[in-house]
Write a protein that binds this DNA or RNA. Structure first.
Lengths: 246, 246
DNA sequence: GGGGAGAGATGCCGC
DNA sequence: GCGGCATTTCTCCCC
């Protein structure tokens, strides 16, 4: 059975060696920085990564309940009959104190991972797809550019419609909302000014659109086209499972 | 030294008992659902929570590199000379396979935590502050409502200025951007229509504002006031440290 | 359950 | 560094 002072040595040594630390414990948490928070006693998982990122997770839920960003300094100290993990980020004026009532589990490990994730089905992939398959936007649509960073904003696809009119396409990978329409509106209005033309078309490309967004779209004379983001692996899997059936 | 089949028993039993599982391992990950992703071999931390949320963390960075939301079913199986953690969410059509090359360590623990976090310094706290201290918006400002859900949108603070004109205040806790201005514009335009009046003032209250947003604000005849979100605990800490000095 | 908007949002890219 | 914007955003609140 480890004593509190053993954990102090273990943790502080592990941090010095840039190991990744995993803790399960009962604790309370106080944070002050961009906001302020307090969390009463409960069982949580604490991770301290090799870049000194700290995450606190409750036993349920997707997101950490508290966290400190990388380059924070951590120090486990004894205070009365409890351990306190003091995390300080002087540069960002953030600090956190985790008062540990009971340590359930402690482990530290040197972890190595230089890999980057490969991801598909994003908004950029949608823009690529529409650029290569312009008929998905509408018959006669001719793409001019894609994912272009202009001073007016990041325009997913820019093109000319069958009537020779300039058209901005804004992609959304899920459901287009009011924000998507105002975003499109900004691009259209700025293009009209910068190009000195009186009409520029606005098109939202997304699987669906909220009713309010649809109404605002119509009010502004823009249009909607239903397009789903591409999923390469899904297609691959279908082929695979078909093959598996043999 | 545990064998692969021991881990299979350990993990599947732990899940059955709704324990929180902590794993450090070398693995590769394949995900297919709302998007698609693949991540080559590397060292990672895997957490499976009591609500069957799954998180995969690399040894650095704030966010999980892969995850599955709650109510996912997990099953560790043997495939050739490797273990594969199969995570399936049929309802959401999401699935993930984590191929584990080497298990560094495994722990499972029953964790209990019913506590909710108490947080302050949010946008709602800003709205409260401005409602109670209207002179922070401007001299003669009279608040009418705060954080009101209207059919025109969620308006942070609504009030009447010194000239009797209706004014919408949109709070941002950090830096107001173009989105904040278009959001304000939506509220102002809808209020003008619904109230049948020709002018409604728009005010952004935030610590700062981006140059482009400032320009758009001016173009639309709205105004900006510099306000910081309140930090109650910070005040408390200052008082505490003053007391500590005695 | 869907819509709307905040978040201690985070992260990425471009200027 | 800031600005602009996507995110497997997530989460909450309200209708």
């Amino acid at each position: 059975m480890l004593e509190q002072k053993d954990y102090v040595t273990l943790l502080n040594d592990a941090l010095r060696r840039n190991e990744t630390v995993l803790i399960a414990c009962n604790c309370s948490i106080r944070y002050s920085g961009r906001a302020e928070s307090f969390l009463e006693d409960g069982d949580r998982v604490i991770i301290i990564k090799s870049d000194n990122t700290l995450l606190v997770h409750q036993p349920s839920g997707n997101n950490p309940i508290n966290y400190m960003k990388q380059n924070t300094t951590h120090n486990l100290v004894l205070a009365g009959n409890k351990m306190v993990l003091q995390s300080r980020n002087l540069a960002q004026k953030e600090n956190m104190d985790i008062t540990i009532n009971k340590m359930y589990f402690f482990n530290s490990q040197k972890l190595e991972d230089g890999r980057s994730i490969v991801i598909s089905g994003t908004e950029a992939d949608m823009a690529d797809m529409l650029y290569k398959n312009p008929e998905l936007v509408e018959k006669g649509f001719m793409p001019v550019s894609k994912e272009e960073q202009t001073k007016y904003g990041f325009i997913d696809v820019l093109g000319i419609d069958k009537d020779g009119m300039l058209a901005v396409v804004e992609c959304k990978r899920y459901c287009a909302d009011l924000g998507a329409v105002t975003q499109l509106r900004r691009y259209v209005e700025r293009l009209m000014v910068s190009k000195g033309i009186s009409k520029v078309r606005g098109i939202i490309a997304a699987p669906k659109i909220t009713p309010n967004a649809q109404k605002m779209l119509e009010d502004w004379g823009y249009s909607f086209v239903s397009v789903k983001p591409p999923k390469y692996l899904e297609d691959f899997n279908k082929k695979q499972s078909r093959l598996d059936n043999f």
